[in-house]
Simulated assay, not measured.
Amino acid sequence: MLIVYSFTGVAVSVRRWFEVSPEAVMEHGARIELALLAPQPHRGTESAAQQTVVDQPFWRADLFNRLDRPSDSFSAAHFHPRFDGVEPSDRVWSAALTADPWTWLTQQLENVEKLLIGAGLDPRIAEADADDLRAFAPRIVTSAQQFSPEHPLSRDEDFRLTRDASERVRRMLALIPDPTPAVLDHLRPWLERA
């Protein structure tokens, strides 16, 4: 499941996410990603449906927890302040993020100009969207909270929300030199999905 808040030039996507690291550490929680909207030419009549293309990610927050830690610890919470094309920068850890992830996320969303600068982009890109994004920040955070690791899900519930990521899970598993039977069993629904 992917929830997208689309503004004029910027979009915010919110979803449940699950991943397994090369060290076979399983993480899950809310992923919030900001990206630019790619302008599209008008098609059809004045009443025709139009394309909305979310492209060029520039910032991501992963409000994650490790599956082997208490559900409210946010032990794997981090963010990626920029992207190289579609590839995120290295993880950045923040004590403020771990201590109070929802306040931290709200503060980030309320300053999209700063996020654009941090990503090496012109903050004027968000000129038409900054006030709207600030106004919608509480709604976006509420959407993200429904995918929080504070609300533990069973493996099958996690799969239901992230089944579109099966190819990514297979790629993650390929990076683990010797996955344990427990890891393979946990990943089975993603691995079996065609």
Rank of each mutant, 00 (worst) to 15 (best):
R168P: 00
A77H: 01
A130G: 05
Q51S: 14
R31G: 01
V20G: 00
P57V: 11
L115D: 00
F147S: 02
R193H: 14
D62K: 00
E23W: 02
E87Q: 07
L175Q: 15
G118R: 06
L173F: 04
D122Y: 05
L173V: 11
S154T: 15
D72F: 01
G44M: 02
A130I: 07
E46A: 15
P179T: 14
D90S: 10
F136P: 03
P149M: 05
R163F: 04
D55C: 07
L37I: 15
S73M: 10
A35Q: 09
L187Q: 05
A24N: 00
S148A: 10
G118H: 06
T8V: 04
Q145H: 12
R43N: 12
D72T: 14
R170L: 12
P152Q: 12
T103A: 12
P149E: 05
L184I: 12
S94L: 10
E150L: 05
S148D: 02
F159H: 09
Q50Y: 03
P57Q: 09
E110T: 11
R139L: 11
D129G: 08
T45A: 14
P81S: 01
A144L: 06
R124I: 09
I125P: 03
H78Q: 07
R155S: 03
T162D: 04
P152G: 08
E46L: 15
F18I: 03
G85F: 11
P41A: 13
D72G: 13
P152Y: 07
F147R: 00
F7Y: 15
T8I: 02
F79E: 03
W104C: 00
W190D: 03
E110V: 08
V25A: 12
